[in-house]
Design a protein around this nucleic acid. Structure first.
Lengths: 358, 358
DNA sequence: CGTATATTTGTGCTCGTACACACTAAAGGG
DNA sequence: CCCTTTAGTGTGTACGAGCACAAATATACG
């Protein structure tokens, strides 16, 4: 009925047991040269036997090593998706401050390839000990990661992963699976659905992550398997040009009067809801992504948005910093592929979600 | 585009600025006597101005204080709900080990009032510095909390809260709200539903938490408001007496042939699914609670269970320990009421949930 | 065999905080 | 006026680990 853990073994204890001094144990622990093979093996054996775990607080205190991390994210405004990621990373940095960690942000323009390429230099100039980034497509991302790899600087991917590159960790959602969940909820809302529309955000010259695409692919696959009779139509929107978008919407609904349910695989559900309101379609139902303040508001008020699928961006940022610390400071194994939960929010459970994830 | 935090101010720095020695600053920080009013105020002023934050690692290192926590939970088997809570608490203890924290478990029999009363002495005998418990009904819980309060031992409630008592923190779900979510999902599965059945777990002489009841109440209220025409029937099951339960089920379905959807507000959905299978009702649909291994298995395989509502028990245990540490060691404000997220799981998103919450 | 040079091992100070103890200065008592 | 008391203040050591440097031992070479 009880569980206790004995007082921890110190370097000193190991030294005594091995019949050497703390200095020698220290050298073994840090793989520093200047230890005879005999001593080294004796110490290593006892370390293993005793399952020595360093007191990382004492270690951080004694160590003068400073670690500087750089976090490279798309430029964003307050309240947008990326600001949650950033907040998570900053919070973790603050909590880890006594381990001599600092973190600086670098931003690139998601819609401008040059901007990312330029930011590579900005990142390298800071001589980081670790980098967190939201990757763009493979070729340009590789330009950065190759430089990092050469200098043996570990890096972490956030949001989307690239198979051929080797981050120490990736945090993000399994997009195609979350698309499947969207499909499942769609079929719950309207089991016999005949036609559904996907509101796409289209960028010109975008160096986009392919989250949106993968979600859509996962959605399509699920629909093909479970409800192949449903017709899938799409609307391509700019999302930053209201006149253009409204025109496109109007045209679409002229020919598709009967469509009353739609999805959007980006985070702009609130915007589409605004469009829909303006078109007098307040009964149109939407499934969207990400808990932007505006999305949440529309979800709560029952304005079109039925469900939002979320992926704990704050946690992603937080854990990205954590994994760099684990890797560099605590020398712990770091799990490489970390899929975040696919959270399903509606008006009934949204209130208790946000409180814990900020 | 950059954010840095300056090196932290130390006690030494404060001492110099205040024109006193570190000893004096130390006395002020710990509210120890032996400081003149003038010095005390000078130091306090500078502490505030400089927003001094102690290096808690150095502090833990220097301090010889040991903290022993006791966690009082219902007796349980591996894989049941409470084992997740326990695992979370133990994990946190391990991570906090260098702060000289130990944790011991005490269990009581959920179905035996005496057992809880007896466990009170077991808890007190350990002379804990903090206690985590899953409360029973008010009167008996108060017997313990009064003793704790008298010795000024802080305590944390897990799972359910009791309004008149004063834990430093509570972690649990808003049960009635989660009942509302269950109702919402029910109405999605079958919008025009005419009758639904609630599978109740009935204890004889139980000193139960009232989670199950509150969920049911929340469910009923939501139904009354949004779909008053639906008839709500109930089946009272023992859940530990198959013959009896099967008999009750058979009788029920003789008179309610057409009911094809049900809910259970306890964690035994898998058991009901087993019963249903045996009755040849594989198309019956269920909404249940808590991610027991068996529940998850049935959810994945599509055996009756459509949705499971979860509440991050592991997190509850983890954060309960955290809040005791924050309160006792780090002297941080602790949020008193902490509602956990109401997580909604189905076959499509269950895989990515568990990985992060264990 | 003695000296120079590696190689290996041990010592001592440091990090920021806690706390016991030593010290100072002022007040009170004889 | 000296001695004790007490309030207020300062100092030194400890915590566990890291790391520079000193010390001791082993090896090489004339």
């Amino acid at each position: 009925m009880e569980q206790q853990i004995p007082d921890r073994i110190r370097i000193k204890d190991i030294a005594i047991m091995a019949g050497v001094s703390v200095g020698t144990v220290d050298r073994v622990l840090h793989n520093r040269p200047g230890v005879s093979l005999a001593s080294a093996e004796k110490v290593r054996k006892i370390l293993k036997e005793m399952n020595y775990q360093p007191n990382m607080y004492a270690s951080a205190l004694a160590s003068n090593k400073k670690y500087h991390f750089v976090c490279l994210l798309p430029k964003h405004n307050e309240g947008e998706y990326w600001s949650d990621v950033e907040a998570g990373a900053l919070q973790c940095m603050n909590e880890m401050h006594d381990f001599h960690i600092t973190l600086s942000m670098v931003y690139y323009d998601q819609y401008d390839i040059d901007s990312f390429v330029k930011s590579i230099k900005l990142v390298m100039d800071k001589e980081p000990d670790g980098v967190i980034l939201s990757p763009v497509e493979e070729d340009n991302t590789k330009k950065l990661t190759d430089m990092l790899q050469e200098k043996e600087i570990p890096y972490v991917f956030i949001d989307s992963n690239i198979d051929n590159l080797e981050p120490i960790a990736f945090f993000g959602q399994n997009s195609s699976r979350s698309g499947a969940l969207a499909a499942k909820m769609l079929l719950m809302i309207e089991p016999g659905i005949k036609e559904v529309v996907i509101f796409r955000q289209i960028y010109i010259g975008r160096i986009g992550t392919n989250q949106q695409n993968n979600r859509e692919l996962g959605f399509e696959e699920y629909m093909r398997k479970n409800h192949p009779d449903c017709e899938l139509s799409t609307i391509d929107l700019a999302m930053n040009n209201k006149e253009h978008d409204m025109e496109v919407m109007r045209k679409y609904f002229e020919r598709h009067e009967s469509v009353t349910i739609g999805l959007t695989f980006n985070s702009k559900a609130y915007l589409i809801s605004e469009y829909l309101q303006e078109l007098g379609k307040s009964n149109f139902r939407l499934i969207g992504y990400d808990l932007l303040e505006q999305n949440v508001e529309f979800l709560k008020n029952g304005n079109n948005i039925q469900f939002l699928i979320a992926q704990q961006p704050h946690q992603q940022g937080y854990r990205a910093v954590t994994s760099l610390c684990d890797h560099l400071i605590f020398h712990k194994e770091v799990e490489q592929i970390n899929y975040m939960p696919i959270d399903l929010l509606c008006a009934e459970n949204i209130d208790y979600y946000t409180s814990l994830n900020k």
